[in-house]
Design a protein around this nucleic acid. Structure first.
Lengths: 188, 188
DNA sequence: GACTCCCTGTACCGATCGGTACAATCTTCT
DNA sequence: AGAAGATTGTACCGATCGGTACAGGGAGTC
């Protein structure tokens, strides 16, 4: 009861897995009650805004994780090579080496995209900016840094899609490995 | 009435747009009747297998398009540079320069993935094989060709996701342009 | 022990889900 | 014209959807 914050985090984690597995519209209240172990009463007490609030809080939670573990380190880094390696390691960990899907990408593809457009855009925009600024510090031009950061995000998303489609997590690991090299390559 | 084949193709095109816009589970029969202009009676007469048959025929239709316009030209090509340019042009056209989503990728991410796993896997597998064999003929080693083809598919998927997420079709065009260069680059 | 107040399980809501049944209609062929 | 078959709209099915109402349980406080 005192551990309210903790509990809510755990609930959000369960919610994120349901949304990941079934998408926003596919995650029915039944599935949600099963995954969280909470009845409808509790669910709507905790999230008066219903499914939409649940999803939006899950997205915020994800955003927070990336802010803390990916974007901020990227911004504060001195050594580009180390920072990039750390980012890749973080990404690999978060996505369970390709076994886990990107919920933000999934939402972006679905019909619920418009509802969460702002969160989705901000997630990628801040990532790209943080990475581009790091690359710029490593000697790339502004446009090259932008472009290369864009390439990094898109590679990660594509690798997740393809790994899932072909049921081969190796695709994700290879893509991350290649991406590391590409990000560290000297300016063209 | 004689134009049965044609009509069915038009219906499948309408169906594909609904599935693209709402995903497999999100495409309700109501949406489908609206998009196709067909009542339930006609729909279930044409597709006794229901939604699953509709989706599976749509996937087959997509597969057929790629087989004809992408895979086969790739297999038959003599000039790798021209073949790759043609593939990129075909992809750009098919995805409306990033405004259209890849239904196969969308299905792969959703809960319906398992139902259509074979179609999804075959779509990507045959594409990768056709492209890798072309790259091999252009002088790359077997593993390099495989890897580069994988990179191409994943780049296209990632570009579609990111373009949609950020509502910026430019991402897709830039990715295709970069990809062309990367595919044509000499062996590393 | 009584009083709060937060929390939760359950019953229920109207709407919609995918799918079926079937009579009416429309073509086609003779 | 009339029989036969293909095609269609409509009413309907049980199940499930997201969401609400609310009575009762549980933990603190006095």
């Amino acid at each position: 009861m005192l551990k309210k914050g903790v509990e809510r985090k755990e609930i959000l984690r369960a919610l994120s897995e349901v949304f990941r597995a079934h998408g926003y519209e596919g995650a029915s209240l039944t599935l949600i009650t099963e995954a969280t172990g909470l009845g409808k009463g509790s669910l709507y007490h905790l999230f008066p805004g219903g499914k939409e609030q649940m999803a939006s809080e899950v997205l915020a939670e994800i955003d927070g994780w990336f802010e803390l573990n990916i974007y901020a380190p990227l911004r504060d880094a001195d050594d580009p090579a180390r920072a990039i390696a750390a980012m890749i390691a973080g990404v690999d960990q978060y996505f369970h080496s390709g076994d886990r899907i990107c919920l933000v990408g999934l939402v972006a593809l679905g019909a619920a995209r418009d509802t969460f457009a702002a969160s989705v855009d901000s997630y990628f925009a801040r990532w790209q900016t943080a990475l581009a600024q790091l690359l710029r510090r490593s000697g790339l031009s502004k446009s090259q840094a932008q472009r290369r950061a864009e390439d990094a995000l898109l590679t990660i998303q594509g690798a997740l899609v393809l790994a899932r489609a072909r049921n081969d997590a190796g695709i994700f690991r290879r893509a991350l490995s290649d991406l590391t090299k590409r990000l560290l390559a000297p300016a063209e």
